[in-house]
Simulated assay, not measured.
Amino acid sequence: MSIDLLNREVAPATVMKPAASLLPADVFGRIGSMETRLARNSQEIQAAQSIRYRVFVEEMGATLSPEAMDLKRDFDIYDDFCDHLLVVDTALTGEPEEQIVGTYRLLRQEVALANGGFYSASEYEIAPLLARHPSKQFMELGRSCVLPHYRTKRTVELLWQGNWAYALRHGIHAMFGCASFPGTSPESHALALSFLHHSVGAKGEWAVSAREELFNTMDLMPQEAINAKHALMSMPPLIKGYLRLGAMVGNGAVVDQAFNTTDVLIVLPIESISGRYINYYGADAGRFGG
């Protein structure tokens, strides 16, 4: 993969409003039989949790609470107040909750602060980042997963269409969240982590670090020893997708034993999103607006 994805164009530093859509108010985009929207009821949230279980536990080897393992659903207290973005394939037979093929969990700053904080704060020092931007609204992205058969360009486009439209609707200035490498050995991802540390580390007003007791250095190789193309090829698709958009990465990796992952913190100011992606999805989020 070419490293020109890191040559970011800076979009205007404004928060725009989504354009009028031909779709229902809670549907953010549609491609063929597939659409992206928010979960409408507890049954759909539980269905999203079941998909998370299938991906995180059955595929990636996570170990959840006994109750979650028994119910075969990944859930925690954050699910009660987060919004749940879905990708739904309406061509599938059955009830709406049986048509869900992908999900993201969205947590706005005002909601987080009213309910005890952000999930990412359990791994990263989020408070100083927020304090440096008192006039900005942040949104946490988490629990991203897609069923194997639907891991296609179309599904990824719909997830990002949903994130973008939701961010515009709520006046969000920056997104952040943990993204994961498989396994609990940072050293096994030395090339990728070192590339992230040297090339796209969040600096200055966007700097954020792993909690001291959880900190694992990402500086595992000297910069001159890093082959950027090979480093990008070794990264999970989600992290490469964030980089294409213009994301930065916090300092330090965190090992999550329960989820069998090595986490990094993604920081994505709206003003840093690559201009070509703004143009593709539409400055008003109207790209897949029906």
Rank of each mutant, 00 (worst) to 15 (best):
A174R: 02
S199C: 14
G204Y: 02
V156F: 06
G116K: 04
A121L: 03
N115L: 01
W160D: 04
E224R: 11
G116W: 00
A167E: 06
F176A: 09
I172D: 01
R169G: 14
T152Q: 07
S194R: 09
S144R: 00
G162C: 10
E212G: 11
P128H: 06
T155P: 03
T217E: 09
V200Q: 12
Q137D: 08
T184M: 13
A167R: 05
H197F: 13
S199R: 15
E187A: 15
M221Y: 02
Q161W: 00
E123F: 00
R169E: 15
L107Q: 02
A225F: 00
Q223E: 15
S144K: 02
K153I: 04
F138I: 06
C145L: 06
L196Y: 02
L191Y: 04
H198Q: 11
R169L: 13
G204N: 15
S122A: 14
I172N: 02
F176E: 07
S135H: 11
K136S: 13
R108M: 02
L214P: 10
M175A: 09
R132L: 04
Y166I: 03
H197W: 09
S194H: 08
S120G: 04
L168W: 00
I172V: 15
S185H: 13
F138A: 05
T152V: 04
F118R: 09
M175G: 07
Y150G: 05
K203T: 14
G204Q: 10
